[in-house]
Amino acid sequence: MTDDNSLFDYVIRLADDHLILGQRLGEWCGEAPTLEEDLALANIALDLIGQARSLYDYAATVEGKGRDEDQLAFLRYERDYRNALIAELPNGDFACTITRQFFVAAFMKPFWHAMLNSKDATLAAIAAKALKEVSYHLRHASEWVIRLGDGTEESHRRMVDALDEMSIYTGELFEMDDLSKRMVEQGIGVDAAGLEREWRTTVETVLSEATLKFPEVSHMQTGGRAGRHTEHLGHILSELQYMQRTYPGLTW
């Protein structure tokens, strides 16, 4: 185990990724293009919130200061959230949401797979459960990318726009800062940079079947791991934290 806050900070990043993405996906409830999709998106959101809970719960244990999952999830300031920017991007149209979920799931699947070998038994156990779930998430998103890319002219155009919009946030997923490197050195964390090739192969295989291409990206946006977010996060938090901020310290 580490003797500083590294493990806590590392777990919080992961937890924030899942909470914020789950929160976004939850906004789709009752809004999906088919009833089947309403069920699927709610189901994926539920998986993500479940993964976030396991991670916050573990972070709280690691921290050992008596905070619980809800205090960590709901009672921090904007700059203290450490999720990757892609998680907080607005849902946009269905093509945008599917593209976002596709990029993230194509990353999280090999990520959780690698985490199975973590020396940290709790993280390895969370990974084992999450891996099963994210495999479905990736299949679901991939199938839609193909349907929409190789569907109608309109759906193809919308997918091109969505890829354009979302691709500039994918570079951040593979970044390795000092914290990530320390975690890898200790045999706890995952070498995210090392997953890029597999991610690229997954993405390009699916996009090619969808008659789509990964766009040229001149510059990858970044900042989430250091708490520098998009303007969207504040609005997400104003809803997410509404009850806890309005009625402080109560049990629900």
Binding site: P33, E37, I146, L148, D150, G151, R158
Partner: peptide, 13 residues
Amino acid sequence: REGAWVREAALAH
């Protein structure tokens, strides 16, 4: 209405 293009795309595919 907003989901129509998605359903059409799924059918077309």
